[in-house]
């Protein structure tokens, strides 16, 4: 099996001469949660609609499991589960009827045991025979995910999935998605304009603005633990100036000295060396703090201060 599940190659969308998406390319790997981040109006929804065949593509190619979504639609869509904006369901039918409806549509046989399994996974077994109009938004969201997963897709596409959910619902959804990616090895593409949300659930994130690719960022915490990565370390000491002076003549130079806080750029291994150095020079250390650059800082620098919410 190929390691790349979704691939966009120079995708462009123009409507009446206006370029909404401009030469956008990115790849989603198997089993990762991939964030799709951008300010409102950046073109996230438009891109997702092209990926699932709701909108035509002006130029460029979108491949899902190697199948072109335009030329080989049926094969490509057989691997896709999606919720575009709200979880649109037939409110006048029961949860079970809705699942039956989408099971029949997915182009391959979905066994009863698969339906039972999914229903248990999203914890809807108690209300499955009630009409969807009586469901809470959280329940609808879960039923939406259930219908998207029936046919065991290799990519789950979620457009702003936490819209309208309360904090508890958002947390619940996040836990579901993480479990999904881990247990079923499904790739998940989540679009959002909310940084905090993406930061908490994604392994990797792509940022777009005005329909253009801005940058990609790995968020997975294990990468930041790597030995060679440098980061800003703050040393809260009794006398900042004295501490800075003690460093003169060494290979370490403070980036900033302010309010008795000395900031240095160090690798992980260098931190104990500095501590030892200060102790030898009888400089009292009250606190050592690692200042990681937040996604927000990166996002703002990538989009050059473009507004975010």
């Amino acid at each position: 099996m190929n390691d790349i599940v979704v691939e966009l190659q120079n995708v462009t969308k123009k409507i009446r001469g206006k370029t909404l998406i401009d030469q956008l390319s990115f790849q989603v790997k198997r089993g990762e949660i991939y964030g799709f981040l951008g300010p409102n109006g950046a073109g996230k929804t438009t891109t997702i609609r092209m990926m699932v065949g709701l909108m035509s593509i002006t130029s460029g190619t979108i491949l899902i499991e190697g199948h072109d979504v335009v030329k080989n639609r049926a094969k490509a869509m057989a691997h896709v589960g999606a919720i575009v904006e709200n979880p649109e369901l037939y409110k006048f039918m029961t949860g079970r009827q809705n699942l039956l409806h989408f099971a029949r549509m997915c182009g391959k046989d979905v066994s009863q045991s698969r339906i039972d399994e999914i229903v248990k996974f999203v914890e809807l077994d108690q209300v499955l025979d009630k009409k969807v109009q009586n469901y809470s938004l959280g329940m609808r969201q879960r039923l939406g995910i259930a219908q998207a997963l029936l046919h065991q897709p290799s990519i789950l596409i979620l457009d702003e999935p936490t819209n309208g959910l309360d904090p508890a619902g958002i947390r619940e959804l996040r836990d579901y998605l993480k479990r999904l990616a881990r247990e079923e090895n499904i790739s998940i593409l989540v679009s959002s304009h909310l940084l905090s949300e993406i930061e908490l659930m994604c392994d990797r994130v792509v940022v777009i603005q005005n329909g253009k690719y801005v940058g990609e960022q790995i968020l997975d915490s294990k990468h930041t633990e790597e030995q060679q990565v440098t980061r800003s370390i703050q040393f809260h000491v009794e006398q900042g100036e004295a501490a800075a002076q003690s460093l003169e003549g060494t290979s370490y130079q403070p980036v900033q000295v302010e309010n008795n806080v000395v900031t240095l750029t160090l690798t992980r291994d260098q931190i104990p060396e500095i501590v030892e150095h200060f102790v030898r020079h009888h400089i009292k250390i009250y606190e050592v703090r690692s200042i990681a650059e937040t996604l927000e800082d990166k996002f703002l620098s990538m989009t050059k201060g473009g507004h975010i919410q």
Partner: peptide
């Protein structure tokens, strides 16, 4: 009206 058209058209069916 219900937005379910999206659900219909993201399936393998043409």
């Amino acid at each position: 009206k219900d937005g379910t058209i999206k659900q219909l058209l993201i399936r393998p069916a043409s």
